[in-house]
Design a binder for these strands. Structure first.
Lengths: 336, 336
DNA sequence: TCATCCTTTTAAAACGTTTTAACTAATGTG
DNA sequence: CACATTAGTTAAAACGTTTTAAAAGGATGA
């Protein structure tokens, strides 16, 4: 039913070797033969078997992309950018969502080792997750090229890393809130690099770190809502919040608004990531932009290079992308 | 460097046939041999080569998923549901985003024909796109099982189809607006099944179809904003709108709010899809729920069945999932 | 006419598995 | 003891390509 190279060769009256050579545009075959083989292949609608090609070429023309979940605009946008880049070299993407579970990641690493993909991009996993760094390092050393995006690598020589300056982002956000007159500034998220930027900023501005104003939760809308509800019960509330991501910010705003507290009139809120919806939310979210598209493209391009067997210039082993404060309407001057 | 079956066989002192048999848990090998082979395999950290397995087994344990884009919560949620289903049988997903371009889809169809995937799920493509139905039919007839989701199939026997009742959804939405007292009801989107539900409902309720109140645009937030801006300029505005999806609804609301028109006080708006954010938007969106998760799971399960060589019961050739009106706060009684 | 050198073609090996059929050794049976 | 049966192992084929090395054919020149 499915046409194979043998069929083409038979009909063209040549050996499969010649047929293969012709179809791969070898200069060795006679013009006349070349023409005939191509014509027959076209007529029969011959499509080379990718599985056989993969075996002999030791490459599948696919890459693996590890992200925690798809239903998160940050990863969706990153994925899109990576896909747009690698498709130029005809690479396809195998989607590997871990649901924030280390064990899932391990399964995917083993799948990668089996030779299903020619390279892999690992994105961040949430800060509370157990890291599989040694396993990934083994993967990168002995199997396929690997690139990290927004995730720390134990060895930049082997696993290049593309990061955004989240610490500085949180610093900028906090600084802006301080400039707006806020002193009671909280942080919403998980323990992370971002929190460190927040911490540095307030201490530098002689504001004491108040553990009461630090709220841990899932980095989702639901997590934000949970934090918002907790805030409603508080006697003394912070006047401003820096959130780990835009989803949490939206959740917090939703819960607060529902409880009769206005944003930004009563409380200023800053998100992180600048996901698409944040610009169209009510109120439009002040947030920290992370150059997802740029980073995704860079990660894709670096992986393409590595898969092509090229060495990476030292300057590209660790790339830190600047983040940027985007001022919209979820923040306002402190009114007292 | 990479351990192969031959290495395991050599070290265990058996032939590769025996090694293979043992590792595939054949009952034919002696218990002692079985143990020895497994032990060596473990010690050497042997992982079977997926490319070789794919060739001989004529299967790659991957499926293709065709969607227009990732950066659209509807498809992200659908993707997640499909992935969660097929992963149970150890299938991975190759992500195929067409960017609403027919030519891209054609490329992916050819990739599928090359044997890179064992099955495929095709989702909708936007109503304005040229359809490749004949090509997909050929794919399904001669190559691999195919399932359609939210997309019309020319032959349900060969390509089963999972759909939601979008026409009824739009009907319900329009009916609800009429019940709220609205008579000047507009439709925002592309020409589609949904518009047909809207049309039927208003004519059934003796309301004349006003072409002025039908707004075509891209099915994105930006498309919605464009429509919103157009609405602002109108002398006589509709008092309610049914939107093709939630993104458009959000765009419309954003533009109108910006222009000083309140939702739902001045105008009622209903979306479609019930994407996650719609519940957390300000105002929370009244919308038509489409059971994405259920549909994705069903599509995954049907494809698994087909790939396992099972026949599909006739009752599952065409599945229409009911849609449901979710009343939130973007709609209100007509105030006159 | 024969050696030499291209050009073109092809047989065969390789990729790393699974699977079939054949083989060997051991066991059971009349 | 001869024969059939069973258990366990393995050689070899198969999957469908690409690639290498060898072969074949043709032209050139001495």
């Amino acid at each position: 039913m499915v046409i194979t190279l043998k069929d083409v060769a038979d009909q063209a009256g040549v050996s499969i070797a010649t047929a293969s050579l012709a179809l791969n545009n070898s200069s060795k075959v006679k013009a006349e033969t070349f023409r005939r083989v191509h014509q027959i292949a076209q007529k029969l609608n011959y499509i080379p078997n990718a599985r056989a090609q993969a075996l002999v070429k030791r490459a599948t023309k696919t890459i693996g992309l590890i992200i925690p979940e798809m239903v998160n605009p940050f990863f969706a946008e990153l994925t899109q950018a990576i896909k747009d880049t690698v498709i130029k070299e005809s690479y396809n993407i195998i989607l590997c969502c871990t649901d924030y579970k280390s064990e899932e990641e391990v399964k995917y690493i083993n799948m990668f080792k089996s030779g299903q993909v020619d390279g892999a991009i690992f994105s961040c996993m949430g800060d509370l997750m157990q890291k599989n760094d040694e396993m990934v390092l083994d993967l990168a050393k002995n199997y396929i090229p690997v690139v990290y995006v927004e995730r720390d690598s134990p060895n930049h020589q082997i696993i290049p890393i593309i990061k955004s300056d989240l610490k500085d982002g949180a610093y900028q956000a906090t600084k802006y809130l301080i400039e707006l007159g806020h002193r009671e500034i909280g942080f919403v998220g998980q323990s992370s690099e971002r929190m460190e930027g927040y911490r540095q900023c307030i201490t530098q501005h002689q504001i004491a770190l108040n553990q009461q104003f630090i709220f841990y939760n899932y980095i989702t809308i639901e997590g934000g809502i949970a934090v918002g509800k907790k805030l409603l019960k508080l006697v003394q509330r912070p006047t401003a919040l820096v959130c780990l991501n835009d989803e949490m910010a939206i959740g917090v705003i939703q819960a607060l608004t529902h409880g009769g507290i206005q944003v930004p009139q009563d409380i200023s809120i800053i998100g992180t990531d600048n996901i698409k919806i944040s610009n169209f939310y009510n109120p439009p979210l002040t947030t920290i932009n992370v150059p997802k598209i740029k980073m995704g493209k860079k990660a894709g391009n670096i992986l393409l290079k590595l898969m092509a067997g090229q060495k990476l210039p030292v300057s590209e082993h660790y790339l830190l992308y600047p983040t940027e404060l985007i001022i919209r309407q979820s923040t306002a001057l402190l009114s007292r």
